[in-house]
Simulated scan of single mutants.
Amino acid sequence: MTGYTPHVRREWAALAAPTVSPARFAAHMTDGLPAPVRRWLAHAVAPGAPLLETVELVMHGEIRMGTWRRFRARQILAPPRGLVWAAESRLAGLPVSGYDRYSGGTGEMRWRLLRIVPVVSGSGPDITRSAAGRVACEFPLVPPVALGPAVCWEPAHDREAVAHVRIGQEEFAVTTRVSLSGRLESVAMLRWGNPGGDIYGEHPFGAVFEGETRFGGFTLPRTVRAGWWFGTDRWREGEFIRFTIEEAAYR
Rank of each mutant, 00 (worst) to 15 (best):
Met1Ala: 11
Thr2Met: 06
Gly3Trp: 01
Pro6Lys: 03
Val8Trp: 03
Arg9Val: 03
Glu11Met: 08
Leu15Thr: 02
Ala17His: 09
Val20Glu: 02
Arg24Ile: 03
Ala27Glu: 15
Leu33Gly: 06
Val37Gln: 13
Val37Ser: 10
Arg38Gly: 14
Arg38Asn: 11
Arg39Ile: 05
Arg39His: 09
Leu41Arg: 01
His43Met: 05
Val45His: 00
Val45Met: 06
Gly48Ala: 03
Glu53Pro: 00
Glu53Ile: 01
Glu53Trp: 00
Glu53His: 07
Thr54Ile: 00
Glu56Lys: 03
Leu57Tyr: 11
Val58Asn: 06
Met59Glu: 12
Gly61Cys: 11
Gly61Lys: 15
Arg64Lys: 15
Met65Lys: 08
Arg69Tyr: 02
Arg72Thr: 05
Gln75Lys: 05
Gln75Ser: 12
Gly82Gln: 08
Trp85Ile: 01
Trp85Phe: 13
Ala86Ser: 14
Ser89Glu: 03
Leu91Glu: 03
Pro95Glu: 01
Ser97His: 01
Tyr99Cys: 10
Asp100Ala: 09
Gly104Tyr: 12
Gly105Arg: 00
Gly107Asp: 07
Glu108Ile: 00
Trp111Tyr: 09
Leu113Trp: 10
Leu113Tyr: 07
Leu114Thr: 00
Arg115Lys: 12
Arg115Ala: 09
Ile116Lys: 08
Ile116Trp: 04
Ile116Phe: 05
Ile116Pro: 01
Pro118Ser: 03
Val120Cys: 08
Ser123Pro: 04
Gly124Trp: 06
Thr128Gln: 14
Thr128Glu: 12
Thr128Trp: 15
Arg129Trp: 06
Ser130Glu: 04
Ala131Gln: 13
Arg134Lys: 07
Val135Lys: 00
Val135Asn: 05
Cys137Ala: 15
Glu138Asp: 14
Glu138Ala: 11
Glu138Lys: 05
Gly148Ala: 14
Gly148Leu: 09
Ala150Phe: 11
Ala150Ser: 15
Glu154Asp: 06
Ala156Gly: 01
Val162Ser: 12
Ala163Arg: 10
Val165Asp: 02
Val165Cys: 08
Arg166Ala: 15
Ile167Arg: 15
Ile167Ala: 12
Ile167Met: 14
Gly168Val: 00
Gln169Trp: 01
Glu171His: 01
Phe172Ser: 04
Val174Gly: 11
Arg177Gly: 10
Leu180Asp: 04
Ser181Gln: 06
Gly182Val: 00
Leu184Gln: 08
Glu185Lys: 06
Ser186Ala: 15
Ser186Tyr: 02
Ser186Thr: 05
Met189Cys: 12
Leu190Asn: 04
Pro195Ala: 07
Gly197Pro: 05
Asp198Tyr: 00
Ala207Cys: 13
Phe209Tyr: 13
Glu210Lys: 13
Glu210His: 10
Gly211Val: 04
Gly211Pro: 10
Glu212Thr: 08
Thr213Asn: 10
Thr213Phe: 02
Arg214Phe: 05
Gly216Trp: 03
Leu220Pro: 05
Pro221Cys: 11
Pro221Asp: 05
Val224Glu: 03
Arg225Trp: 00
Arg225Val: 07
Ala226Phe: 13
Trp229Ala: 09
Phe230Tyr: 15
Gly231Val: 04
Thr232Asp: 15
Asp233Ala: 14
Gly238Gln: 09
Gly238Asp: 11
Glu239Gln: 14
Phe240Asn: 13
Thr244His: 02
Thr244Asn: 03
